[in-house]
Amino acid sequence: MYLVEEAAQLADRVFQLWIRAPQVARHARAGQFLIVRAHENGERIPLTISASRGDAVRVIFMAVGKTTGYLSTLKKGDVLSDIVGPLGKPSEIKKYGTVVVIGGGVGIASTPIIAREAKEAGNHVIGICGSRNKDLLILEDEMAAICDELFITTDDGSKGIHGFAASVLEQLLKERKIDCVWIVGPAIMMKVTSNVTRPYGVRTFVSLNPIMVDGTGMCGSCRVTVGGETKFACVDGPEFDAHQVDFDSLMQRQRMYVDEEKASVEHHHHGGCGCCGSEQR
């Protein structure tokens, strides 16, 4: 059993949990994730390790379905059945020079740990946090404290620069030499944003989020096509060279269970499992 040490809501439908999991916390590095099975009937879902502190790790997630909906109802002192991690390869962090770390939406959750390690490796770190509007923006203070420079963008202009992270990135690439870029967010955002760096030949990493089961390389559910080859995101990734990734296939595979997911949430509602409050928000 894994104890929830802290629980908080960060933004509309976005929640944060600090969970006690020593074997994960002690080994966690930037770019890695964990898999949680919340309870005996639960699904195993992957969540990025957003920070670690002593024996605890932090995850930040958006309540989009049954499991994340359930997790959003947890309070300090509740327990989770299973946590395994850290999974996946750590980010390839070294001294590149100037690096840009971009988070889109809940993907911002992954950025502080990457930015911090990049900074510690001696890079000049520029952060870009993009969200739909100011109420959905998370971790601004944390990123501001780590990064040498931080840009905020919102789709509706309610905070920071009106527009997408991609436009800020484009501007930066025009103005100065950028040596490496990390982009974490929804697949479509990663696809669009990484296209910006392509003509400049700048090394660009994206963190892929296919549907997973075990997270240890034994099922192939997470297979993605990178540079024409099949890779298992859970062990070969989750970070890959953005310019080699087949995003369309990734997005199609992410939709494999849309019908089942709807059925699952409905069952959950009528099953009265106590998470309806959060879902009606």
């Binding site: 009937n41 699904e43 195993r44 049954k66 269970y257 089942e260 997911e261 059925a263 699952s264 069952h267």
Partner: peptide, 11 residues
């Protein structure tokens, strides 16, 4: 236990 979906969460 996907055979018991949706009582179990995995489809």
């Amino acid at each position: 236990h996907a055979d018991c979906f949706p009582a179990f969460d995995t489809p």
